[in-house]
Design a protein around this nucleic acid. Structure first.
Lengths: 186, 186
DNA sequence: GCGCACATGTAAATCGTTACATGATTCG
DNA sequence: CGAATCATGTAACGATTTACATGTGCGC
């Protein structure tokens, strides 16, 4: 049900489904994603349940859009979610599952190749986050003190992405060098 | 469809649904989880699709169990999955979503409290992984060189967990100290 | 006898992805 | 006039969770 809460959270300021999708792409990119089709469906349900209202409005750029607004019931739901403490614990990493069984190929060179590909992909994601960070630092020299509280919270989530993906890349490097050692021993 | 592949991967050695669940709890704990109900249903489908066969067998401890065995078609499917390169990119962290909107409470002490709870939970997970690591080191002094290739791959996934959760705890500490600074400034 | 670990499933509901379907506006 | 971006949705399918439902074997 977390998608519900995220949509309600974004709608602390009115927005359309399409605009909400931008949030996922710009802000949540490194820790959550939702397809437009799912967003539209969920907004509709949330409105039927009384957490949102909506109305058509002209767009500055393009066709009319349906703008959603949160109701008091919606605000209350976000509040409960925020006060209930952190939800930890459903990471899902398909590549770690693959790595577990990669020994089945009985060929360490294949494992090495896999890890090198993985390292590349992880570095690319790291580069994206670093770009966002750099952009932010360029615009706000006094970081993080100069940020208002809302931006500061956003900034903390970005730091998390940076620190986690940074650790992953280090791990990949380390694994690659251990694999190389193992290959030399044979 | 990754669950399919994981089940087939585990079944490189015959096992029952209940035993597979132990794998998720012991080995995959830090990066994947599946409920028993889902495992049973998926095994059934995989058998119908010809990737598995099964037969009832007596248990050492408890009632009879249904033991699944992988077929050549199943092995081929795992092979394809392993050779296709790493699947990266759907981390989902509910707590980062919560943190994003925590500014709505307009009370940095609430944010601080949240981060402290989060830090506690993350440390607990780290402690579990460290325990597994310590146990491993105690039994295998020459780590990682003394491991066979299968264990070595497993060991790499554990290192990943250690490194990622370690980074998360560091990030939480850092965030807490930044929040404290911010609180003092007011 | 009670509780725990062992063992297997079904049903209902929701979540999430992929494919399909349509159309307006803007910029080059 | 074509491509990109803006904009909204439906349908079908598969993945996942939660609740329900049942029963064995062992140790205290």
């Amino acid at each position: 049900m977390t998608l519900d809460h995220i949509l309600l959270g974004i709608l602390r300021r009115p927005a359309s489904g399409y605009e909400i999708k931008q949030w996922f792409e710009n802000v949540f990119q490194h820790f959550w994603n939702a397809k437009l089709s799912q967003i539209y469906r969920t907004l509709k349900r949330l409105e039927a349940q009384g957490y949102l209202t909506s109305e058509m409005a002209p767009s500055e750029q393009g066709p009319d859009k349906r703008v959603y607004r949160i109701t008091p019931a919606g605000r209350a739901r976000v509040q409960v979610w925020l006060e209930q403490g952190p939800e930890v614990g459903n990471d899902r990493h398909a590549y770690l599952a693959q790595l577990t069984f990669l020994s089945e190929l009985k060929d360490l060179r294949k494992s090495l190749e896999f890890m090198e590909q993985l390292r590349t992909r992880l570095s690319q994601r790291l580069a994206v986050l670093r770009g966002i960070d750099a952009h932010w630092r360029a615009e706000e020299p006094g970081l993080p003190d100069s940020l208002d509280d809302e931006q500061f919270h956003l900034y903390l989530t970005l730091q998390m992405g940076l620190s986690k993906i940074g650790a992953s890349v280090k791990w990949a490097d380390d694994s690659i060098s251990q694999l190389n050692k193992r290959l030399e021993r044979k």
